[in-house]
Design a protein around this nucleic acid. Structure first.
Lengths: 109, 109
DNA sequence: ACTAGTACATAGTAACACTGAATAGTGACG
DNA sequence: CGTCACTATTCAGTGTTACTATGTACTAGT
């Protein structure tokens, strides 16, 4: 992956995953696959799992173990109240940044 | 500063500063002031100077020492060809990310 | 038995922004 | 003259994050 993208994902990848979970509960492998579909082709599984561990530790999600037909049991994550609030804060922060950068980009033409 | 903003700035702050330098050459103290004007109120001077050292080390800028009426000589930075190319790459990366996130935000309504 | 696909976990690394302080020059004010 | 305020740069130490590179484990098909 490009180095710029790697750095830019810091802080935003968490929001992206929270947004995905906000739409509907999901487990790690599924989230990784969905990210790949959406164009984030190079995000490693390990990255997603580490992120999920972190947001669970921070109390943003509820976890339920669900047996899988193929492979080990799935850990299904769903956003709780704190997670929802955190996600809204994320959108606010993102909105501010996107507005500033949009302006800067316009000025540069 | 909010923790989310701190993390989100990783990767983007560099692009922001390069964009500022693209408009016109500037020195560290000036860049910090301009950032504050543009709403990035809590970005410390130390952060900006560290970033300038890095982009100079990476060969993205030219540096000229200019005596100041008040205080130590200024180090005026200007974007060179490599810096311009890097900035364009930044806008491409940013554009991709902004598009994805915009879509995710829409879906979440 | 072997392979492929599913599913999760983790130790070590690199990069970045922040904190907090230090250094240094100039001008104004009492 | 001393010291305060403003300008201007530097740097050591810290915390957070995503990436790399594995390892573990379960199931189904050949």
């Amino acid at each position: 992956m490009g180095k710029q993208m790697t750095e830019m994902l810091k802080g935003t990848l968490e929001g992206i995953v929270l947004a995905i979970l906000s739409a509907q509960p999901a487990y790690g492998y599924e989230i990784t696959a969905r990210l790949r579909e959406q164009g984030f082709a190079d995000i490693a599984e390990g990255t997603v799992y580490a992120l999920l561990v972190r947001i669970e530790r921070n109390g943003l999600v509820e976890v339920e173990k669900v047996p899988s037909e193929k492979g080990p049991p799935r850990k299904v994550y769903s956003l709780n109240t704190l997670g929802q609030a955190y996600l809204e804060e994320f959108w606010t922060t993102w909105g501010f940044l996107a507005e500033r950068l949009g302006q800067l980009k316009e000025e540069g033409k």
